[in-house]
Nucleic acid binder design. Structure first.
Lengths: 166, 166
DNA sequence: ATGCCGAGGTTGACGTGTCAACCATGACCT
DNA sequence: AGGTCATGGTTGACACGTCAACCTCGGCAT
């Protein structure tokens, strides 16, 4: 708990290094996806839907998993619907609730983009880290995430193991 | 160098953890800045200009330091100019070149926002990491950045020390 | 039944970023 | 001089995300 108003040398290195890395990573991966015709947000939605039971999710749940505002979810789903990547259906029980369903076209787009995206994640990132560094990163995320909001830890990071090698 | 098409358990944990953390961090810090009347991009430009000799920078150099496209730089500087945060001057030598100069209003905005932003960086991030984890992060950034583009490492990360404690 | 409130979503306006096309100037060659 | 090319920047159209205002319906108290 440093008390200065500015970052000292070590903190500064850590912070600027992290920022430079994360901005570049996002830029590269976003580029690749865009070339495949999808935005990062599109990709996220497609993945979440494809992992959901019946490939369908209420807009609320979608927003909760992605940590998005309801407005963002609404716009995103509308745009994807206009492109035929998802469909919308009402909920039988509660007419207020809306749900998004993965379409064939959406599933296809995901199948096409996923291997490229995964390759990018490796090529730009994971391939350059040792297993130990990957474990350190998990610990870092676990340390930081609880202080970033009401969101529960993503399933991958929940409880159990500390940081150990493969 | 794994050869599968998908991420295995450890890789997946590392990647999803990292993504969750970086998205939340950006969201929180962006929120705070926006409440102070600045976007993250505004803040970046103000910092770069304030650190530059004579508080002035050619648009090209600005773009190089921030790793932005020239189009992005152009739009960004125009908008900041319209709000009085920067001014533009031509270059005496080469009429093609344009330069941005920090205005009084810009310097003021930065003075007002910086402590809040720094506090956020600590509160959301650095305070929850040990010095050792900060050092690990620096090493990770140094491992990854060279593979993300033509950009030279930011000055903070250049050569010399490995990862050691404070 | 009436009235209020909260949950779930939508909408419109606006700021930001990307891409592609474009313009102007300097440098170099012949 | 004239042509070609690279450099540095601008512009317009469009996709994305935020905010604030709004709408609709269900639940509940009185």
């Amino acid at each position: 708990m440093s008390d200065t108003e500015w970052l000292d040398g070590d903190e500064r290195r850590a912070w600027r290094g992290y920022v430079a890395m994360s901005e570049m990573l996002e830029a590269r991966l976003g580029q690749d996806l865009r070339r495949a015709g999808l935005s990062s947000a599109d990709y996220t939605v497609l993945v979440l839907l494809s992992e959901a039971p019946e490939r369908r999710l209420g807009l609320g749940e979608l927003g909760a998993e992605a940590q998005w505002s309801k407005s963002r979810v609404s716009h995103q789903v509308r745009r994807m619907q206009e492109r035929g990547l998802v469909e919308r259906t009402g909920d039988a029980d509660d007419p207020r609730r809306a749900r998004a369903v993965l379409t064939g076209r959406g599933a296809e787009a995901l199948r096409a983009a996923a291997p490229l995206h995964v390759a990018g994640v490796r090529r730009y990132f994971l391939d350059h880290l040792t297993r130990e560094q990957q474990a350190q990163l998990v610990e870092i995320a676990r340390s930081v995430l609880p202080h970033l909001g009401p969101a529960p830890l993503p399933p991958e990071l929940r409880e159990g193991r500390g940081g150990e090698e493969a």
